[in-house]
Design a protein around this nucleic acid. Structure first.
Lengths: 233, 233
DNA sequence: TTTTTTATTTGCGCTGGCGCAAAGAAAAAC
DNA sequence: GTTTTTCTTTGCGCCAGCGCAAATAAAAAA
């Protein structure tokens, strides 16, 4: 695979960048193909590069000492991740990035973007917008985890993914089918595969979803939204 | 109370700013005194201003529909909060800011800082450093909430506050006494006042802390750290 | 001082969700 | 095809933590 500078305009933060800048980024970057399940970087690694996901799908997660994984967010094509190093010298990644399928990311030296941001405010603003959006989502999910029941959190997680994918594909019609395992859902909502399974089974009985192996089909979007809102009880 | 431009250098982000810039900020700002329990802003309000806490203490929190409060972080003197509006037009605050005691904050028009950042990269980097630090903390707390027991989370919350205050006062000797109610701890760790009370009572029996009304004195810092690490079992 | 308010403690019962274990089902590898 | 691996389901027992209710204690107000 070969990337042209202009391809990078598909990245939100780089929309308005000049050809020279984009070429400069490419010159200080390498394409890193990563197999499913492998890591782009681990929590605690020196944040020497920031990444742009070129193809595939990945997730940001934290792994606790006892081996439990917590999903923080999913990363889709042309999204930036691991950008802490562009902001602070000798930073380390505060989470790990794992490929959910065979994926390719462009690893760009943090220093380069940092230097560019010195003179290109739109880059800083783009990155800050990413950060504030991410903070808002994290805060919301934190509150959910602290105050809501598992069923509600699973409903929200599914709807969040639906929105994310719909937004990315630009489709007006929501994709009512998701590829995600119970494991994924459990890690994203802070519960266990057993509880996810029981919850989905119950929903299937009620005609809200249809669950398959690593697949969830939404049958009653409205009903699911009610569950997410905690209405219904 | 009257603020001099140079006072603003106590704010991390503004350390390196020129006198003119600081004066400019002050000219577009007002001091807002807020009584204990009242709000600087609510979640969803238009983010027209960003704030610098001049005196007192505040917290960022979310309040869910059913009235439950979740504490996101505490804000100490000379810290910046509510800065989303400086990054994006027509942004709204993703959380609310509540005074924990009688407090005064400088409310600066978001637009001003935004304009300054166009030409002063160090401001952007300062703000981004705040954001990345906050993101790292949120991610960590999210994982804790998803994977750890209540006892461990309470221990961590207490230690976090100790570190925060020690860092702020610049004291080498940790302050082993905290002013915080069970309510605060419950909201910060996603549990209930009952469980906090039971946990502290148990710790008191074991000689780890001494609990009073809106007060926690740490007797055995090492023991508390072991609880936070999940060692001990 | 007394009264009122606010914070904390604790007994008690209950339940949401955990997690083992074992079986079933779908996919992948051979 | 068969075997192996991976994912899902479900019965079962259990317990961490919830939350009411009532008592107690400490502070604040009168």
């Amino acid at each position: 695979m070969e990337l042209k500078p202009s391809d990078l305009r598909r990245v939100n933060v780089l929309e308005q960048s000049s050809d020279e800048d984009l070429a400069n980024l490419l010159n200080n970057a390498v394409l890193r193909p990563i197999e499913e399940g492998e890591f782009f970087f681990l929590q605690g690694d020196p944040a020497t590069h920031f990444y742009i996901l070129v193809s595939g799908k990945a997730k940001l997660c934290q792994i606790s000492k006892n081996g439990q994984t917590t999903n923080l967010r999913t990363i889709n094509e042309w999204q930036v991740f691991g950008a802490v190093g562009t902001v602070r010298e000798r930073a380390v990644y505060p989470a790990c990035a794992q490929a959910l399928e065979h994926s390719v990311a462009l690893a760009v030296e943090s220093r380069i973007l940092h230097e560019m941001m010195e003179t290109r405010p739109h880059l800083s603003f783009g990155l800050m917008q990413l950060m504030t959006g991410y903070i808002a989502e994290l805060q919301e999910r934190y509150r959910e985890l602290a105050t809501e029941r598992v069923e509600q959190r699973i409903a929200r997680a599914i709807l969040r993914l639906v929105r994310q994918i719909g937004q990315q594909s630009g489709d007006a019609a929501s994709p009512l089918e998701l590829n995600l395992s119970h494991q994924d859902l459990a890690e994203a909502t802070g519960t266990t595969i057993y509880t996810v399974s029981r919850t989905l089974s119950e929903w299937e009985r009620r005609g809200i979803v249809k669950a398959g192996r690593e697949r969830v089909v939404i049958r009653d979007l409205h009903g699911l939204m009610e569950l997410a809102e905690g209405t219904g009880q």
